[in-house]
Simulated assay, not measured.
Amino acid sequence: MTAFDFLQSTRASYDAIADEYATRFRGELAAKPLDRALLVAFVELVRDNGGGPLADVGCGTGRVTGFLHGLGADVFGIDLSPGMLAAARRDHPELRFEEGSMLALDLPDGGLGGLLAWYSTIHVPDGQLPGVFAEFFRVLAPGGHLLLGFQAGDGVLRRTEGFGHDIDLDFRRRDPEWVAGRLTGAGLTVSARVVREIDDTGEFPETTRQAFLLARKPVVSGGRQDGDTD
C-alpha cells in the first residue's frame, strides 16, 4: 500500500463514521483509570521539562485532547479526517484543531514540548512507521516527550464495515519491543513501557492487550546528546 492509498482510505473511512464514533467513544476514557493516569503523567513530564505546546496527533474527535486541556496542557489537535475534526470542533469549541498528516506534519522543527499519538499509528503500514517517528523526532523540542498508545500483539485486523458504513481500515497490532526499536532508530530514547492486560468487561470491552510507550528526544549539550558515551 502506498502512502497515498493509506491516507485516502483512512481519511474516507473516518469521515464516514465520524458522528457515530464521537457518540460511541465520548465516555471511553472515563472508564479506563490506568490510561488516564498515563496521560496525567505525560502532561506532568512535559510541564516539568518547561512546557511548550503539546500536539495530539491523530486526535480524532478530540476526546483525549479535551482531557489534556483539562489538565492544564497547552494542547491542540491534528487529524487527517475533516469529519472527525468537525466532531472535535463541535465538542470542544475552545480548542484548536488542524487538518494534517503525521507523515508530513505542518509544524516547525523543535517546536513541541510534547506529542501524543493515542491509537493513531495503528493504521500506518509498517514500512512507513520509521518515517512517522522521524517526523515526531523533528517536531519535538530537545527534551520533549512522546507518548504512544496502541494495541499489543501481531497481525492485521481488516475492517470493511463500521457503524453501518462501508470502510477500508487495517488495524495493526504490534509488539511493543518492535515499536520501541523503531523509536530508538528515529533517535528517540524510550523511557517507559506499559502493557495493560485485556479488559473485556464494562461498556468498552477489549479483545487485545494495550501497549503504551513513553519516549523522549535527547537534549543536546555541548555537541553531545543524552546517552552519548563515545
Rank of each mutant, 00 (worst) to 15 (best):
4 F>S: 15
6 F>E: 05
9 S>C: 12
10 T>N: 14
16 A>W: 08
16 A>D: 07
17 I>Q: 09
20 E>G: 10
25 F>N: 01
27 G>S: 14
32 K>I: 01
33 P>C: 02
37 A>R: 09
44 E>K: 13
45 L>T: 15
45 L>F: 13
50 G>W: 03
50 G>L: 02
52 G>F: 13
54 L>F: 14
56 D>A: 07
57 V>S: 04
64 V>R: 08
67 F>Q: 01
68 L>R: 08
69 H>R: 10
71 L>K: 05
71 L>D: 02
72 G>E: 01
74 D>W: 03
76 F>M: 11
76 F>D: 04
77 G>D: 04
79 D>L: 13
79 D>G: 04
80 L>G: 08
80 L>A: 14
82 P>L: 08
84 M>T: 03
84 M>V: 05
86 A>F: 00
86 A>L: 03
91 D>N: 12
92 H>L: 13
97 F>E: 06
101 S>Y: 07
103 L>W: 03
106 D>M: 06
109 D>W: 10
115 L>S: 05
116 L>I: 10
117 A>R: 00
118 W>H: 08
118 W>T: 03
119 Y>S: 03
121 T>A: 05
121 T>N: 09
122 I>H: 03
124 V>G: 00
124 V>P: 00
130 P>G: 03
131 G>L: 04
135 E>T: 08
136 F>L: 11
136 F>Q: 04
137 F>S: 00
141 A>I: 07
147 L>Y: 10
151 Q>S: 15
154 D>A: 12
154 D>R: 14
154 D>M: 09
156 V>S: 01
156 V>T: 10
157 L>R: 09
157 L>D: 13
158 R>S: 13
162 G>D: 08
162 G>T: 05
164 G>R: 07
164 G>E: 10
167 I>Y: 12
168 D>N: 14
182 R>M: 15
185 G>N: 08
189 T>F: 04
193 R>D: 06
194 V>N: 00
196 R>A: 11
197 E>F: 07
197 E>Q: 09
198 I>P: 02
199 D>K: 06
199 D>Q: 09
200 D>W: 02
200 D>Q: 03
202 G>N: 01
205 P>Q: 01
210 Q>G: 01
213 L>Y: 06
215 A>D: 05
215 A>Y: 06
216 R>F: 08
217 K>I: 14
217 K>A: 08
218 P>M: 05
218 P>V: 13
221 S>Y: 02
223 G>Y: 02
226 D>V: 15
229 T>N: 04
229 T>S: 07
229 T>P: 11
230 D>N: 07
